[in-house]
């Protein structure tokens, strides 16, 4: 129908080339910085990274944050999305309220939760005023690291559940109502409908939500830096520290490479294990 032309490619080319450059160049540069010394192959930088006191705890903490935060977010997001997929008065307002955190950066999110959890913060004041505690609970400081962990989890669950919620809600809205009604007519209870119809059809949305969230979780930085500094080292934070304070570009690059590697690894795992078989046979 259309004359064979280069036009569609020419239109895509600039964007595609730009992206390739901004992914490809830093990747090569990072590999070069990480594995060479004075122009020759060397593992010195790698050794320096691994032997750093903070490296393994940064690795562990980053994964621990993801492992704790993401399941909570997924659970909450699914519950909220199922509730808000019904028609009721005030639905639009409720949805808007739940997506407000989408606009809030991790730095701001950290600061906002500091106002809740600081010694003179809202939570402590309320608990003290109703007499549940007599002294404030300290959430911050090196000696309260496990509470810092909890505070960061709270801030991140609060801030970044909305993105999961939105993805799941959009996915739910794409499921035709008749699919669910059909199951209802044929005798399925609410739980059966969820288990047999809604969840399987929601798989692609859950998959993209998990990919996006895991990607961001591997880069977790601002909220940790604000609330805990290096008390709880994370990969992105260490990369930042090595670059800006120590000025060790090689070690910093290795942190970047590790984050990229983890993102791609988890992405691949999700793609493999959350496959929606019925969508594949259609092509």
């Amino acid at each position: 129908m259309e004359r064979k032309s280069l036009l569609p490619y020419l239109l895509i080319l600039p964007a595609f080339a730009y992206l390739l450059f901004f992914v490809g160049y830093p990747l090569l540069q990072a590999l070069y910085l990480a594995f060479t010394q004075n122009g020759a192959f060397s593992l010195d930088t790698v050794r320096r990274t691994i032997n750093d006191y903070y490296f393994w705890s940064a690795f562990k903490d980053t994964l621990a944050f993801a492992a704790v935060i993401i399941p909570i977010q997924l659970f909450l997001a699914i519950v909220f999305a199922l509730l808000l997929n019904k028609a009721f008065k005030g639905k639009d307002l409720a949805i808007y309220a739940l997506v407000i955190p989408l606009t809030i950066s991790d730095v701001a999110g950290g600061l906002i939760w500091y106002s809740m959890l600081s010694p003179y913060g809202f939570v402590n004041k309320v608990l003290m005023n109703i007499g549940l505690i007599s002294h404030p609970i300290y959430f911050f400081g090196y000696q309260f690291r496990s509470r810092e962990f909890l505070a960061i989890v709270m801030a991140e669950v609060w801030r970044a559940t909305s993105i999961v919620f939105i993805i799941i809600l959009a996915g739910l809205q794409m499921i035709s109502k008749e699919y669910i009604e059909a199951a209802e007519v044929f005798g399925a209870s609410y739980w059966t409908r969820l288990r047999r119809i809604v969840f399987p059809m929601l798989k692609p949305s859950i998959q993209s939500a998990l990919i996006i969230r895991t990607l961001f979780a591997m880069q977790i930085f601002g909220v940790v830096w604000i609330l805990a500094g290096r008390d709880l080292p994370v990969l992105a934070g260490e990369g930042f520290y090595q670059l800006t304070v120590i000025k060790d570009y090689g070690v910093a690059s290795i942190y970047a490479l590790i984050i990229a590697g983890l993102s791609i690894l988890f992405g691949a795992v999700y793609v493999k294990f959350l496959k929606a078989e019925y969508l594949e046979v259609m092509r």
């Binding site: 895509i12 964007a15 595609f16 992206l19 901004f22 992914v23 160049y25 830093p26 990747l27 540069q29 990072a30 910085l33 990919i211 990607l215 591997m218 880069q219 992105a236 990369g239 670059l243 570009y249 910093a252 690059s253 942190y255 970047a256 984050i259 990229a260 993102s263 791609i264 992405g267």
Partner: peptide, 23 residues
């Protein structure tokens, strides 16, 4: 092309600012 653009989205571009600084 569309798939590779989606795949590029899975790449943590922000942390790549670290090696980028050299350039």
């Amino acid at each position: 092309i569309k798939l590779s653009i989606i795949a590029l989205r899975m790449f943590p571009i922000p942390v790549m600012a670290i090696p980028l600084i050299i350039l």
